[in-house]
Design a protein around this nucleic acid. Sequence first.
DNA 1: TTTGAATAGTTGCTTAACTAACTATATGCC
DNA 2: GGCATATAGTTAGTTAAGCAACTATTCAAA
Lengths: 146, 146
Amino acid sequence: MPNNQFKRGELYSFITGKASTAIARRLQKKFNSAALNLTIEQWSVLYHLWKQDGISQQELCNATFRDKPSITRLVDNLEKLDLVKRIASKEDRRINMIFLTPRAQQLQDQSMGLATETLNEALKTVPEEQIEICKSVLQIVYDNLK
Amino acid sequence: MPNNQFKRGELYSFITGKASTAIARRLQKKFNSAALNLTIEQWSVLYHLWKQDGISQQELCNATFRDKPSITRLVDNLEKLDLVKRIASKEDRRINMIFLTPRAQQLQDQSMGLATETLNEALKTVPEEQIEICKSVLQIVYDNLK
DNA sequence: TTTGAATAGTTGCTTAACTAACTATATGCC
DNA sequence: GGCATATAGTTAGTTAAGCAACTATTCAAA
């Protein structure tokens, strides 16, 4: 029998992302308690810049699964907070390269620590192999809809 | 070894809910194509009223995992669209009971069909038992953080 | 019975997402 | 070279989330 019917509750939870929003809210609370003055969305941009500094806004769009206007405004706000700087590319003047400021570099260890802590709390009672299955299912869902 | 470390990619995906946002976006596109003129968030409120009509805004908060201001504004917009009506409770005048209009009742079959269709596309290549494990992991995550 | 706490809902403010329309630069083809 | 097209980014408008502060009503305890 194919998966052509869902009970109402599971359908709703899959679509609304109950679990991931709970994780994001918890992490945001930790940021606030630590006076990090950073939204989860802003953090998600810094996250990719910590991996590779000096990438374009378009690359940030791809990495964070956001559209261009969303990244424009997140970079606007991160610039206001003195966490990143736009530098026009010399090879292609359409492109803004986004660079971390020293201030942003200082935030990496603390915020990544809080993120890991949050995930540990979220998954503390879940066996490793079930986490792996869950991860793979979510990846397949994403690929199926991409 | 406890789950005290995560690879960067999986950490990010768990927190940002890549899969559930992909599902929500796909469903929103189907709503738009069908000229349903309904946001996913508005649909998520109607979803619970179709299950049980005439519940309070507070009950909608609990059911949809939203805070009170969010529900106030969603109900505002649903009222403007002539999809729900606020009726003050006679037993407790603090409470608004929210009722579906005939217009909203007509939307149920079509929109729920599109939601089921979306989930089938998302999960079409995933074995049933892995879906069950994924569901249970996400439920545990939610419970751990609640 | 009155006063203080709890509950239901609203309003204001900031941040963010999506769409559509826009500007500027680069590329490719004739 | 010149023109069409594609790409990078911005702006405007609507919807929504989270927080804090607020009003109105109910309830409970002195």
